[in-house]
Amino acid sequence: MSARELAVQMQRRKGGLRARTDMADPTTLRMPVVLRDHLEACAKANFRSLSAEMCARLEASTVGESIDEHGAIVRAAHRSSK
């Protein structure tokens, strides 16, 4: 599944583009201009805001992760499609 398909699927599960009440307070993030420009171009290509693009990418990067009782990140084993 491509990153775009995953993002669309995740957005559908969350009820689409409706206003969300479970959002955190605004967060300031400093990043290189080149990275911001790249993310803005990707957001435009995916018909999303910069914030939505960043959230989709962060959520996709945490799929299969959980936190154990000691606070350590546990990643699900990756299965090869071969």
Rank of each mutant, 00 (worst) to 15 (best):
R4Q: 14
D37V: 12
D25V: 12
E40S: 08
E65M: 07
L6P: 02
A41D: 14
R20T: 08
A24V: 11
L58T: 13
A43L: 00
E40D: 02
R18S: 01
E5W: 08
N46E: 15
V74C: 02
A43Y: 04
A24D: 13
R57D: 07
V33P: 12
G71F: 01
L58A: 14
K82M: 02
G64I: 09
R4G: 08
L17S: 10
R13H: 00
T21G: 14
T28H: 08
E40P: 02
G64W: 07
G71H: 00
L17V: 11
R30Y: 02
G71K: 05
I73A: 03
S66R: 09
R75C: 03
R57G: 02
N46H: 14
D22C: 08
A52N: 11
R48M: 10
A41N: 07
V34G: 06
R57L: 15
C55D: 10
M10D: 06
E5C: 08
T28G: 08
L29A: 06
M54V: 15
S81C: 00
R13P: 00
K14S: 10
P26C: 03
L6E: 01
A56T: 14
H78A: 10
R48T: 11
L58F: 12
M10A: 10
E53T: 10
P26V: 11
A19P: 02
V74Q: 05
K14G: 11
L35T: 04
S61I: 04
